[in-house]
Design a binder for these strands. Structure first.
Length: 879
DNA sequence: ATCGGCACGC
DNA sequence: GACGTACGTGCCGATC
């Protein structure tokens, strides 16, 4: 059997991992992010490649033989951060635990060790794969040697073979050295020929094949400047060539046999993982499969009493309560059991027993009996399904955890407890399994697990509340998110009425038009294919029809709408495809997708608002997402005709904030010009155009206003100059200028942007009006991209987050106002800056003034808030 | 099952 | 100079 050798560039991968992952500490305060990243990469390779031989090469010391040729080799490099240096010994330990050999050689770099072994393996006719982040290694590619370069992150790689290289870079492996010699490499301080970049170098090599070829035929090189540069820098080019050439004949003292890999010992690796706190990786290594029972056995003892018949003595004044469902969709999920923990005991009750019990209902509905829960909204909805109106939900661990740090991805009880260094609860996945294998375990196991979660909830409450108070987020939690959670629960439970027949009719019409379009596209293409597959569409457009290639994706040609639009006048097929895409989206996502989630007996849709997800404080909506129902194009907007009031004689009423983010910006930044624009009630985009282009109101063209609008959009969403250039279809430099001119026009905004970035650097986080936080660890990153992103986030989050705070508060105020006024009107949906209600026709007039007033007055800013309202028989008509 | 490409909203 | 560029959800095809 053929042998497979994996050669890993240890330094390169460690660097990659270090910069790709946030600087994590384990519980002992040791930085482990590079080790962690390295480990995930290693596990993935071992699993996917099943190699017979593995070796990790490291760079030895400070100087190498290359420094003799060129003293400045790798000069100007930032020195390795100490947070990373300290992790190299751990990486070696990791490799030892895996029984994987590693090697370094004085005066030589990891590249040379890898090159030498790769050639040896090749000679033996082995399959060799090199893993690195360093493109220099591409020179090793051959029929037997492939090179996998890390892309985004660490485990995401791109494997280079000779043919892939030719396609992607338009050069052969043998030309890589000459390519580098010409273009140089700033990160290694290799000069190359100044002024020659990748594009020129590839062009030269295509014409003359090699560096020698270029110099032999210098007179044929086009361009006087280029010829001059090449002549002047001939020495540099050849020296660069020497420097980048990997020594494939290094005096290494290890042979291929040393790299033999025979698998790792579970014990050693798992204890290494435990030492470093890599608990999430434990499940990925092949040890004995952790059975549910075993999981629980390894945890500390806990006594949970399973009771069938619930009595008052099992309940208390203050109780942690968990309603356990295995499925996320709590509108329909079965309730498997109920966990109850208080000072007097720990109980588990099978779901049906609890929810059908009169004793339980009475206790649940008693507002004086305090319930501590994880996800109050879910608890409320689930219980409402059993006609229980739960009251007294006084603590919500989910919301609290989210408020404390929204950037945590896992806010479930086991994850939270683990972060607090308590390891008494198994993860749901370990107990229930996942995907198709998910199942309800035996009652004993279920009771234990639910009991543990409930117990942990009971224990964590105090600490978490202290943390909220310490962060000055108590009000945000207690006065905003907690009350909102109840309101959202009621909204979700209420649901939105859907005109199913209407949806179905639209589906029929779409089906016909799609079939027609499909036929037309096939005719124009001259063949049939799957029109929904970009992978199949690409070759048709760009090979068969020979349309110009504007952009490629990593898997082929890009066929996205903005690319197709640029091709529109080139071929009649393009327009058909665009329309097909548009209608296809409506059909699959909005017609079929919505029909799938309509409740059969009521014809209502019940979304779920995720209140603990976004980094900015906005809500999100799932199953279905009712926050992205089409509106921009008329065709799609018609979907909204299917959203109707749930009662006869009722109407849909919608109210939205006008320019809330820009108003918030004016307020936070205290920018006089922006403030006065809003106070005057000016059209803000026109005003921006006047300020940015220095023209009077009547001189503002549509084009100028459109551009100003895009800039405002960019400011609100924190997009980059690149993002703005994309949305306007202009060069990045111009986009950058627009942003600069905007900031010159609004000095208050400029000052705010600078301040908020400083604040983020100082505190490590930014805050909103109501003290919502977003941590930005990348604000001090040495990586430009990460840092820039963090800076834009610092500027944008207080704006978007404050707007989110405001509408959330408005919802609470409105809920109480409706109650206070004795109106029947109900809130149904929130779409970031608008609220959708249904109401009896007779209430509309009152509603109009009430809703507007409540929303506009919910906070008092330097600028007025403005609310527009609409009404109609369907959501579509409320426009 | 999971990923990539694409498209919808704010 | 740049290895990626507002936030979400969900569909499809392709892949293993």
């Amino acid at each position: 059997m053929s042998q497979k050798l994996i050669l890993i560039d240890g330094n390169s991968i460690a660097y990659r991992a270090f910069f790709a992952l946030p600087l994590l500490n384990n519980d002992k305060g040791v930085h482990t992010n590079a080790v962690y990243g390295f480990t995930t990469m290693l596990l993935k390779i071992l699993e996917e490649e099943q190699p017979s031989h593995v070796l990790v090469a490291f760079d030895a010391g400070k100087t190498t033989f290359r420094h003799k040729t060129y003293e400045e080799y790798k000069g100007g490099r930032q020195k390795t951060p100490p947070e990373l240096s300290e992790q190299f010994p751990l990486i070696r330990e990791l490799l030892d635990a895996f029984h994987i050999s590693h090697y370094e050689l004085d005066q030589f770099e990891a590249d040379d060790i890898i090159g030498t072994l790769a050639r040896q393996g090749e000679k033996e006719d082995w399959d060799v794969k090199v893993i690195s982040g360093d493109r220099d290694l591409l020179q090793l590619v051959s029929d037997k040697v492939s090179v996998a370069l890390t892309k985004k992150g660490i485990t995401n790689v791109e494997t280079y073979t000779p043919s892939f290289m030719k396609e992607k870079m338009d050069v052969d492996p043998s030309q890589i050295i000459d390519l580098k010699a010409l273009m140089g490499d700033s990160s290694d301080n290799i000069p190359g020929v100044p002024g020659v970049g990748e594009k020129t170098a590839v062009k030269l090599l295509n014409q003359f094949e090699t560096l020698d070829g270029v110099y032999e035929h210098l007179e044929e090189v086009s361009g006087k400047k280029l010829k001059e540069k090449l002549t002047d820098n001939k020495d540099n080019a050849y020296m660069s060539k020497d420097l980048v050439t990997i020594n494939v004949d290094s005096p290494i003292e290890v042979g291929l046999e040393k790299a033999q890999y025979e698998g790792y010992e579970y014990q050693k690796v798992s204890s290494f993982f435990r030492d470093l706190g890599f608990n999430s990786l434990l499940s990925r290594i092949g040890g004995e499969e952790a059975e549910a029972e075993e999981v629980n056995e390894s945890l500390p003892e806990i006594e949970v009493e399973t009771i069938e018949d619930i009595k008052e003595e099992h309940l208390a004044e203050t109780t942690a309560l968990v309603i356990e469902m295995l499925s996320e969709s709590y509108h329909t999920a079965d309730i498997e059991g109920v966990g109850i923990v208080h000072d007097g005991g720990k109980y588990f009750i099978p779901g049906d027993q609890a929810l059908h019990s009169e004793v339980f209902k009475k206790w649940a509905e008693d507002a004086n009996k305090k319930k501590w829960v994880f996800d109050a909204k879910k608890t409320l909805v689930a219980m409402k399904r059993y006609d229980i109106d739960v009251k007294g939900l006084s603590f919500d661990l989910l919301i609290a955890s989210y408020i404390i740090n929204p950037s945590e991805n896992h806010h479930d009880i086991p994850a939270i407890s683990q972060r607090m260094d308590r390891k008494e609860v198994a993860f749901d996945e370990e107990v229930y399994g996942k995907g198709a294998k998910m199942k309800v375990p035996d009652t004993e196991v279920l009771a234990d697990h639910v009991g543990r979660k409930t117990d942990m909830l009971f224990q964590l409450k105090e600490t978490v509340e202290e943390q909220l108070k310490e962060n000055e987020q108590w009000d945000l939690y207690h006065e905003l998110e907690m009350p909102l959670s109840q309101i959202l629960g009621i909204m979700e439970y209420t649901g939105v009425q859907v005109d199913v027949d209407r949806l179905k009719q639209m589906g029929e019409d779409l089906k016909e038009r799609l079939a027609e379009l499909e036929k037309e596209v096939y005719e124009l293409a001259g063949e049939e294919f799957n029109l929904n597959s970009p992978k199949q569409l690409g070759p048709i457009l760009f090979e068969k029809l020979e349309l110009p290639v504007i952009k490629k994706t990593k898997t082929g040609y890009s066929t996205s709408a903005d690319i197709l639009e640029q091709l529109q006048d080139k071929h009649p097929i393009i327009e058909k495809i665009l329309i097909y895409r548009q209608l296809g989206k409506l059909q699959s996502t909005y017609i079929e997708g919505l029909l799938k989630v309509v409740h059969e007996d009521t014809n209502k849709i019940h979304t779920r608002f995720n209140q603990a997800l976004t980094q900015t404080g906005r809500l999100s909506s799932i199953e279905p997402n009712l926050q992205n129902i089409p509106i921009r194009l008329e065709e799609g907007r018609k979907i909204r005709q299917a959203f109707i009031p749930s009662e006869e004689g009722w109407k849909i009423f919608a109210a939205d904030y006008s320019q809330i983010e820009l108003r918030v910006l004016a307020h936070i930044a205290q920018d006089e010009k922006l403030i006065s624009a809003f106070k005057e009630g000016a059209d803000v985009h026109t005003k921006t155009a006047m300020d940015v282009f220095h023209v009077s109101e009547d001189e503002v063209t549509d084009q100028m206003r459109r551009q100003a609008k895009a800039v405002n959009f960019g400011i609100v969403y924190g997009i980059s100059d690149y993002g703005l250039s994309q949305s306007l279809g202009i060069p990045r430099k111009e986009a950058k200028k627009f942003i600069e001119r905007y900031l010159e026009s609004y000095p208050g905004v400029k000052a705010y942007m600078d301040e908020v970035v400083q604040e983020a650097k100082q505190n490590g986080y930014v805050t909103t009006l109501m003290n919502r936080r977003r941590y930005l660890p990348d604000i001090t990153s040495r990586n430009f991209n990460r840092r820039s992103f963090a800076e834009r986030t610092a500027m944008n989050t207080p704006i978007q987050g404050t707007a989110a705070d405001i509408i959330k508060k408005a919802m609470i105020d409105l809920y109480h106002a409706l109650e206070h006024e004795g109106l029947e009107a109900r809130m149904l949906l929130q779409v970031h800056d608008e609220l959708i209600l249904e109401a009896p026709e007779a209430e509309l007039e009152k509603l109009q003034s009430l809703v507007t007033k409540v929303m506009e007055e919910t906070v008092d800013l330097e600028v007025p808030l403005k609310v527009d309202d609409e009404q109609g028989d369907t959501w579509y008509d409320a426009k």
